[in-house]
Design a protein around this nucleic acid. Sequence first.
DNA 1: CCCCAGGCGTCCA
DNA 2: TGGACGCATGGG
Length: 210
Amino acid sequence: MPDRLLEIYSTLLEHFGHQNWWPGDTPFEVMVGAVLTQNTNWGNVERAIANLRRDNLLSFTTLAALPSEILAEKIRPSGYFNLKAARLKNLLAAISDFGGLDLFFAQETAELRESLLAIKGIGPETADSIILYAANKPIFVVDAYTHRILSRHNLICEEADYQEIQELFMDSLPEDLALFNEYHALLVMVGKEYCKKSKPLCAICPLQEG
DNA sequence: CCCCAGGCGTCCA
DNA sequence: TGGACGCATGGG
């Protein structure tokens, strides 16, 4: 299985090339994007972030001081805007209470993850995305595509949960920031192209051999 | 018209 | 523990 996961990585890298995730200019911006993209198309997230940038709201202190109702209006294109405005405010408040973003991100990975998961609106995928792509610490991000791709290729059972899938990758692969970064991005790429929710396993998926 | 998207919290059995 | 449901816009 470990070798199989590395094979898959090589196959995807060859097929799609390096992705250089995550789209975002700063760790703060990446973190905001991680919340906004919950169950939402990235194109919609870009519109929301463009609104924030246009109005010079894309900084920690500005956003932390912005009323939730105003924030919701700015991020409307990302969907679930009331919910996500509250979640962003929760996140920023928790980080402020901790002593700021640098100090928050300076925690050990396990502590950082616990801190994030304690925030209402931050679940495992959002937490791990922030840890990997904003804080630049090696952790494997599992998402709906990861689950669907692996189960359709019979590498996990359908009922496998987040932790089980994350452990499969992290127990099998070398702990490497660039590898984890690239692998998750590649899984999203193959998911978008070849592993849609309602469609059967695609015959031209680069990952052959069920 | 339909289904879907880089989830999460709540409620209920 | 685990399944159903609400949250919501924009694209195909």
